[in-house]
Nucleic acid binder design. Structure first.
Length: 500
RNA sequence: GAUCCCGUAGCUCAGUGGUAGAGCAUCUGACUUUUAAUCAGAGGGCCGAUGGUUCGAGACCAUCCGGGAUCACCA
């Protein structure tokens, strides 16, 4: 980036690097053996028995230097936090000679004993010190102050959102509190895996590059395979391949992986995003509701040590059971109208009465969806299973066992947004073909998000899939819920950005 | 795609028509338990880009580029 226009601070660091090399110091040694982390020292230290920590070796990035002539204090930051280092010229005659060549951002290793300073901070008094990595470009310096009320004040924080996303590695150094979000993300996914593995369900991998895409309504990314000279699509969902594996005889399979959708970006959409999909043979969506409750509450407990989360002053209760309500009951509760089995014209006039704006060309499903999004969805703060959708909205879900025109499907809403999607999977090959042919027809009519007709998938369903329940969870949104982050960009290390 | 806001030093920001500023960071000096260390001094800028108005533009106008927020699209 600044490859050709180094600023004065960078140029000076290059000079320092040469001086260090000239002095016989390797600025990039290959290995360093730590014995302690910053947090382990801080939690172990005892004023009564300081000798317990008489010989510790720590390493980290220099975040602050306070030089006082023949003694210097600095703070180093490692994966777990910061600790103060006390460097005294008398104890480190050689290291102290080139201390002036070190900067904030450099990584050093220290061996010494732990003590408490006069002002009360547990610190490492260095007996030896060495440079582990010379930093050639300055990082923004955030300074923290604690005022008389104990409030933490941060000065000169690295706050430019764009730069923070583009240079996440700097963000992670300078704003280490965001590491917690990503630790939680990792914990959420590992807890999920363990939950499934404990049940004997198998993690699988299916193609990302697909000759046909399906399993959701979305526009795909297109790429090209040179050797075969064909177009390939980046998958928009995992569903159709995972169902093929249920056909193949596995009775519980799941995949946690990226999906790709070629659509707009905003606070809840990134072009690539992480999904869990899981399919369990011989189960239905009622069973899957209970499983989902157990899964979400377990993940919350493991991640936050609690089954409630606070978001914008709202306390959200994630302990089971969750409210269950049919889509049309929720609609009639919210609007005072029965919207089931209405014609398109009737739905248009209902939308007008409700002040819900819809395009004049909107289909029945589109209008229902709009009314639901406007009138019902924002009120679904506590976890709610919204059940039993119109068949036209769900071409891969099984017809409802008692309600004509509906399918056995639920979406779990929490804090006003959709978190999961589930159905009793359609395994009637005749019905499945009919539904996908209808999709193909609306596709031919210009709906470029309607599903494509995947003959091989239909063949698999004809071979025969046992009764099966399937569940999808948007991992990023789950992470947002459990970390309180309001933008998907804040739960992705490297959100999609426009190229510079 | 629409509307609003933003773009000035490495970072955070001030500067509403008259010689480019502050704090931190950086450099020099002092200081052997400091902690936003302190004290004394110094360097650092194509004010996002281009065009215009003006005697004079960082500021006003236009266009463009980049970003943010809200909305629309999108599950």
């Amino acid at each position: 980036m600044s490859e050709f226009t180094r600023n004065d601070q960078e140029l000076r660091r290059f000079e320092e690097l040469e001086q260090l090399r000239a002095a016989g110091i390797n600025p990039y040694p290959p290995v360093f053996e730590k014995t302690h982390s910053s947090s382990s020292i801080l939690s172990t230290f005892s004023d009564d028995q300081p000798e317990i920590l008489n010989d510790v070796t720590v390493a980290g990035r220099i975040m602050a230097i306070r030089k006082m002539g023949k003694a210097t204090f600095c703070h180093i930051q490692d994966a777990e936090g910061k600790i103060q280092i006390y460097l005294k010229k008398d104890d480190l005659p050689i290291f102290y000679e080139y201390l002036h060549l070190l900067d904030i951002g450099d990584i050093i290793g220290i061996t010494g004993y732990v003590f408490r300073t006069r002002t009360g901070e547990v610190s490492v008094h260095a007996r030896s010190a060495m440079l582990l990595c010379k930093s050639l470009t300055p990082i923004p310096i955030a300074k923290e102050e604690t005022d008389e009320h104990g409030n933490k004040i941060i000065h000169d924080a690295f706050a430019d959102k764009e730069l923070r996303y583009r240079r996440r590695y700097v963000d992670l150094i300078v704003n280490p509190q965001i590491r917690d979000t990503f630790r939680k993300r990792s914990k959420i996914i590992s807890t999920m895996r363990r939950f499934f593995d404990d049940q004997g369900w198998m993690e699988v991998e299916t193609p990302i590059l697909q000759p046909l895409y399906g399993g959701a309504s979305a526009r795909p990314f297109v790429t090209h395979h040179n050797a075969l000279d064909i177009e390939l699509y980046l998958r928009i969902a995992l569903e159709l391949y995972l169902k093929r594996l249920i056909v193949g005889g596995f009775e519980g399979v799941y995949e946690i992986s990226k999906n790709f959708r070629n659509e707009g970006m905003d606070k809840t959409h990134n072009p690539e995003f992480s999904m869990l999909e899981i399919y369990i043979a011989y189960k239905d969506y009622i069973w899957m509701m209970e499983m989902t409750e157990q899964l979400i509450s377990t993940i919350s407990q493991e991640t936050n040590g609690s089954q409630t989360v606070e978001i914008n002053g709202k306390t959200i209760q994630l302990a089971p059971p969750y409210r269950r309500a049919s889509m049309f009951d929720l609609l009639s509760d919210a609007t005072g109208m029965n919207l089931r089995n209405l014609t398109r014209d009737e739905l248009h006039s209902a939308a007008r009465k409700l002040n819900v704006e819809v395009e004049s060309t909107a289909s029945q499903m589109k209008i229902l969806d709009e009314i639901f999004s406007e009138c019902v969805q924002p009120s679904l703060i506590q976890p709610t299973f919204v059940m039993d959708f119109p068949v036209e909205m769900s071409p891969l879900a099984k017809a409802h066992r008692t309600e004509p025109g509906l399918v056995e499907r639920f979406e779990l809403y929490v804090n006003g947004s959709e978190l999961t999607n589930c159905f009793t999977e359609l395994n009637d090959p005749i019905d499945q073909r009919k539904r996908l042919e209808e999709q193909a027809a609306s596709r031919a009519d210009g709906d470029d998000e309607a599903m494509t007709l995947d003959e091989d998938f239909l063949y698999a369903i004809e071979v025969g899939m046992p009764p099966t329940a399937g569940l999808g969870i948007g991992i990023d949104r789950l992470v947002m819920l459990l970390t309180g982050e309001e933008s998907i960009r804040d739960v992705l290390f490297f959100p999609q950005m426009k190229p510079l």
